[in-house]
Amino acid sequence: MTHSPKLLEKMQNTLRRKHYAYRTEKTYLDWARRYILFHNKRHPQEMGVPEIETYLTYLAVERNVSASTQNQALAGIIFLYTQVLKIEIDPKEINASRAKRSQKLPVVLSKEEAHKIINLMVGTHKLMTQILYGGGLRLMEVIRLRTKDIDFANRQIIVRSGKGDKDRVTMLPEKIIEPLQNHLFRIKEVHKLHLKNGYGSVYLPNALAIKYPHAKIEWQWQWVFPSKTLSKDPHSGETRRHHLGASSLQRAVRKAGKLSGINKRISPHTFRHSFATHLLENGYDIRTVQELLGHKNVQTTMIYTHVLNRGGIYVRSPLDD
């Protein structure tokens, strides 16, 4: 294929110009590449709705992908056409076989189970998991926290550019204030050392690096959970300290989950599910929980009311009469 390398490079440049997250950039490029390869390396300009439908149907029927994965593929392909090739395609016109959306209820820990797992963890990973459970943050939201997002005075955490690129506020648990302050003190000392050695800068979102050229070395913009090692920025090529990787926390949570002996599939997101469920158990209204979670639609939050009702939690079994 003679066209695709230049085309995918153009797509990458467009994604970066529009300030898409690096993970989204990689995902969209991968789906565009797979779409082209599926159609024997034909140029997308020679294809259209029928070929998109064929590929999406293949994903659902032959590959048996989830609905979210199929939607992700569609989003990447639509971006290629509308933003790169400037060919308007309405997703509503695409009549492909749709992957079935899972009806599974989320895995939720009891309060005792959540504390048991957290108490089996140590150091930075323990602190991160306490924020997952104590504030209901998503995995990447915790990892991407910057020091300015922690508001000790008002006991709150500001979640910047969450899902849907929206900011929100959630609570900062009283229990972690002192360990988090101690953690930030240590991080700040390391930051000072890096500045002396010519490093200490971080990635800044969108055009902030141009508008505020010195902001990248300021303390307020530093990661709350930085990586232990320096790395090269994939966009700029600059050597700097990035935030901890997602896999590091995922491994730590899985390890603690196994050690706990709790027979549930436990991941960092399990603590977000548990946060929502336990708030509802404590009598907080669904709209409050929706805002804390950052859900656009209250129907998404309603899944936790089903979790509360499962297994007859509030219904007495006739066997116990």
Rank of each mutant, 00 (worst) to 15 (best):
G134V: 01
I87K: 12
I143D: 01
A73M: 13
Q72T: 02
I87H: 08
R63F: 02
I143V: 10
L59F: 11
I150F: 02
K116Y: 12
S102T: 14
N95D: 15
I131H: 05
P91W: 01
A75S: 11
D90I: 05
S66G: 08
K100M: 14
S68V: 02
E62N: 06
G123M: 00
N95P: 07
L139N: 01
A73K: 09
M128F: 10
F79R: 00
L85H: 09
M128R: 03
K148T: 12
T82M: 03
V108N: 06
V65D: 11
A75H: 03
Q72K: 04
T82V: 06
A75N: 08
I94L: 02
A75F: 01
M128A: 15
V107A: 08
I117N: 05
V122Y: 07
K92I: 10
V122T: 13
V61P: 06
D90M: 05
L120I: 12
A114G: 01
I150Q: 05
V122L: 09
L137A: 09
E93W: 03
G136L: 14
I78D: 02
V107F: 05
S68H: 04
I150L: 06
H115Y: 10
L137T: 02
K126G: 09
A60C: 11
M140V: 11
L120N: 09
R63H: 05
D149T: 06
R146V: 14
P91A: 01
S110E: 14
L139W: 03
L85D: 14
L145G: 06
A99Q: 00
T82R: 07
L105E: 08
S110H: 08
P106I: 15
D90G: 06
K148M: 14
Q72R: 04
E141Y: 02
L109P: 06
V122K: 08
L59V: 15
G134D: 05
T82Y: 03
T82K: 07
L145M: 13
R63T: 13
K86Y: 14
H115C: 13
A67I: 10
L145P: 04
D90H: 09
